[in-house]
């Protein structure tokens, strides 16, 4: 991510971000921000389904040394281990303490597991229930349903591989 008013004042900042996007794209991401967003977004987001791939990417990003902030999201224990192996540091951490308040308003956990993959809450509970029903009726494949569910997530952070795994569990 480019820091507003700091990184983005340099003329080559967009090129650096595009370089990162190309690197991420080379490693077969499960999902990635659509290319249209690469031209203006201060952030490039991508999701991967295995930590080994993430390790390879971080190795390349460390070598490239572009000076752009990189944030890794995932299991703390896995990220810590990989960073240590690569000689990288944890600079700042953003913990989650979970959800509070009127939790009875939330859908069942099995639905939340899918809807919360989009941090902007663009994936509705109704759509998850709808596609589960269609899958059970044999009207859509699980893979296609996962892609349909990912569509409202414009950042490309919705993990379609994980959605496939959850939908498989829920429809078997």
């Amino acid at each position: 991510m480019l820091a507003a008013g700091i990184n983005d004042k340099y003329s080559d900042s967009r090129q650096k971000l595009l370089k990162i996007a190309e690197i991420l794209n080379q490693y077969n991401p499960t999902n990635i921000m659509p290319k249209a967003g690469w031209k203006f977004s201060p952030t490039i987001t991508a999701t991967f389904s295995d930590i080994e791939t993430v390790k390879e990417i971080l190795k390349v990003l460390k070598k490239e040394d572009l000076g752009v902030s990189i944030v890794v999201s995932g299991l703390i224990s896995e990220i810590e281990k990989v960073l240590k192996e690569l000689g990288l540091n944890l600079h700042t951490i953003h913990y989650s303490l979970g959800v509070f308040g009127k939790k009875e308003l939330l859908p069942p956990d099995k639905i939340l597991e899918i809807t919360t993959m989009c941090g902007h809450h663009c994936v509705s509970r109704n759509s998850v229930e709808y596609y589960i029903k269609l899958i059970k009726q044999g009207k859509i494949t699980i893979e296609k349903a996962a892609k349909k569910l990912a569509r409202p997530c414009v950042c490309g952070i919705f993990n379609t591989d994980r959605a496939i795994e959850i939908l498989t569990r829920l429809t078997n």
């Binding site: 999201s73 703390i76 224990s77 944890l90 953003h94 989650s96």
Partner: peptide
């Protein structure tokens, strides 16, 4: 070690196993 986890526990809060981590590759 990772900061403030003990304090959060004392107050009855637990951190989730996942987090966002800035790995310090950015610079002004």
């Amino acid at each position: 070690k990772l900061p403030i986890i003990d304090l959060l526990k004392q107050e009855g809060f637990n951190i989730r196993p996942n987090a966002k981590i800035n790995i310090g590759l950015g610079r002004p």
